[in-house]
Design a protein around this nucleic acid. Structure first.
Lengths: 200, 200
DNA sequence: TAACTTTATGACCGATCGGTCAATTAGTTA
DNA sequence: TAACTAATTGACCGATCGGTCATAAAGTTA
């Protein structure tokens, strides 16, 4: 097997590198040349694996979503209490948003894309809407069962709590890029969780 | 006076139109051609008034900041209670973020710029940092005097409340672009204000 | 009308954009 | 070794990018 000339970089390896570039610079500001110099590939090689720039971008976004899914799964499995798991996952996402780029932090790639690219591209918007709905479903169900079975007291419907928490996460991710430190972000998230009654 | 050929569009008129384009499409995705067709101007005319694309963008961002300042001033003057004024201003900003673009809403131009452009441009980052500090100062002072003089009770330091509120506003502005309706956004902001103890 | 001032106009520029493709290279298989 | 397959390489493409500039046009002033 493995017929033909072996590739310098696996599809996964290319995705990982390209993801970093798009994550930091955004879609429009990233040129194919940027990705070529980051990967060390040449034009033809890249275009053999990915049809065009947008296809590559979507693949990296999907790669990012996959990593988020894996992180969520890992964190939730490591915690016996689902709500503790959810909270830990949110903090982990913040930490990831705080990973350093060329200047400042990179923020959350989902949020970055939601702001820059999604408004002008139906396909990408659909991807993010779908992902958001899936997370909302998980979140709301987790809260509701905790309320029914573990005697959790909520001051608002789970949907409201989700909406407010995602807005906070969203905003923290943005501010993390330039305005605040990772420590401040964690602190603010903790307070918000407390305000929402999720700190038992 | 008024020597020479009269201009088709005043500097202000150009700014207003260009601002709308940048606001909706972002910096990178907006081409000079986009702005020419929106204004009806020709290349030479535009470049006679603004040195280059970035200069034009900064001018439109400044125009936007100016409008925000005016809005804040107007709202605060129309309310006798400063905190009521602040809250009303936040709702007004949300409404502005909900103004419709080609697809979805335009969000807040400051937030859009914070995500897309500021990380890679020191000058723009400085502008937004400065504006943020000014607003924080106003906000914190307003809260502190209300606490000292009007018997307002705060559960957290004013800086924390500001940080959390700005994160929420930031996130709502983003989600407003694609994910949630203006009504939901107002509702969530109201709840957040309530949680922070600012709804007396 | 003639001189003067400022803007409008659009042809033009080099650089870069995303994308294509024929030829070469590096492996595996027989 | 020879045939085969798949990836690398880099020249090349048209389109668009941001930006310039000489000329024409539209006003005011004298």
């Amino acid at each position: 097997m493995n017929i033909g000339r072996p590739r310098k970089l696996s599809r996964e390896a290319i995705l990982e590198i390209a993801m970093d570039v798009f994550w930091e610079k955004g879609y429009e500001a990233t040129s194919i040349a940027d990705i070529l110099s980051a990967t060390g590939l040449h034009k033809g090689s890249l275009y053999q694996t990915f049809r065009d720039k947008k296809t590559l971008f979507i693949a990296t976004l999907d790669h990012y979503l996959g990593q988020m899914y894996q992180l969520k799964k890992d964190v939730m499995q490591s915690e016996s209490d689902p709500i503790t798991g959810l909270k830990k996952f949110l903090h982990e996402m913040l930490s990831l948003s705080g990973s350093k780029g060329g200047c400042g932090n990179k923020g959350c790639m989902i949020v970055n894309t939601l702001v820059e690219t999604a408004p002008h591209d139906i396909e990408i918007r659909k991807m993010l809407e779908q992902q958001n709905k899936k997370f909302q479903t998980l979140f709301v169900e987790t809260l509701n069962t905790a309320q029914a079975e573990d005697g959790l007291k909520l001051n608002f419907p789970a949907e409201i709590i989700f909406g407010l928490l995602m807005s906070t996460m969203n905003g923290l991710s943005n501010n993390l890029k330039n305005m605040i430190s990772l420590e401040e972000a964690h602190q603010l998230l903790e307070i918000q969780l407390q305000l929402l009654g999720l700190n038992n």
